[in-house]
């Protein structure tokens, strides 16, 4: 780049500067906000994870690895693996539900498309808690499902609650919308002539679906998987309300350390552990999906 002459620099600098200043000013406040309330709060979590609990039970900063050592035992590892398993199961089930639903609405919804999507969005934006509670009420031992089963003489009651099924079911119910919307969006943008062409090329709707439709909506799929996996892994409400001690997830443990057990440094270490696992998984995932996207 050729350096502008000194004269030109002098002449044009004030105005450019004035313009940039306005935008910089606009950015300054929100940036400062995010630094103060988000970035620095994350830093504190990391710092406290190396901290300790004083004799009076207060958290204090320190430089020790006790908390991480405490995490390294079978109980916590099992909990981590269970959380991972639940989250993955949630993703898989959501995918199986979301794709057909999004497909039907996007390609066969006709003029009811928007109404159908709104019908999905409305209950999902309504309180997450209430929806979990609704399942609890429905599945409890004296709930509607069990009493119906009893009345029909089919069974004298099934224990639904406190099972892995109930917890994963709750997670799916809670987050499946995050899978449907991105898939729906990419299916909506899908050029249907692509499917026509695919039918000529691949002979048959099933092969066309897997060789044309699914790859063409890959962006939505990848996005949806991420959007379901992230909140599912960190959730504690589903396990708290629909599960029990045997189905607890990392989130429950974190919640206990902060709100009940009052061991904040240990809770911080758990949080950092969760975030680290998430980051590793995310990076691996993003890398895998982006190479795959390049290959095509």
């Amino acid at each position: 780049m050729a350096a502008p002459t000194a004269e030109a620099t002098r002449r044009t600098a004030p105005r450019s500067a004035q313009r940039t200043r306005l935008w910089a000013l606009l950015l300054a406040l929100p940036t400062a906000w995010m630094m103060t309330f988000f970035v620095s709060s994350m830093v504190i979590v990391v710092l406290l994870s190396f901290g300790r609990t004083t004799n009076d039970g207060f958290p204090a900063f320190a430089l020790r690895t006790d908390n991480y050592e405490a995490l390294w035992n079978d109980v916590y590892l099992e909990l981590f693996l269970r959380s991972l398993g639940y989250a993955l199961a949630t993703v898989a089930i959501s995918l199986l539900i979301a794709y057909p639903v999004a497909y039907v609405i996007a390609l066969h919804g006709g003029r009811y498309k928007n109404a159908l999507i709104a019908a999905i969005v409305v209950p999902f934006f309504a309180s997450y808690l209430i929806r979990m509670y609704a399942w609890k009420a429905l599945l409890s031992d004296d709930g509607l499902v069990n009493s119906a089963l009893r009345n029909l003489g089919l069974s004298d009651g099934i224990t639904f609650l406190n099972t892995s099924y109930a917890v994963v079911g709750g997670l799916v119910y809670g987050f499946v919308v995050f899978m449907i919307l991105p898939i729906y969006a990419s299916l909506e943008r899908l050029d249907t002539s692509l499917i026509e062409a695919g039918k000529d090329l691949y002979h048959g709707p099933v092969r066309t679906f897997f060789f044309v439709t699914v790859p063409a909506t890959r962006a939505g799929l990848y996005g949806g998987i991420l959007l379901v996996f992230l909140p599912a892994l960190g959730d504690f409400v589903s396990a708290q309300l629909l599960g029990g001690a045997g189905t607890f997830m990392v989130g429950n443990l974190v919640q206990q350390q902060f709100m009940e057990g009052q061991n904040w440094p240990l809770g911080s270490a758990l949080t950092v552990g969760m975030m680290t696992a998430l980051t590793v998984l995310m990076v691996a995932y993003l890398r895998a999906t982006s190479t795959q996207a390049r290959e095509l």
Partner: peptide
């Protein structure tokens, strides 16, 4: 914040 589990954001805010 959109890709951070809410519990992490919550815990961090509490500590801050």
């Amino acid at each position: 914040p959109l890709v951070t589990p809410e519990i992490v954001t919550g815990v961090a805010a509490l500590l801050l």
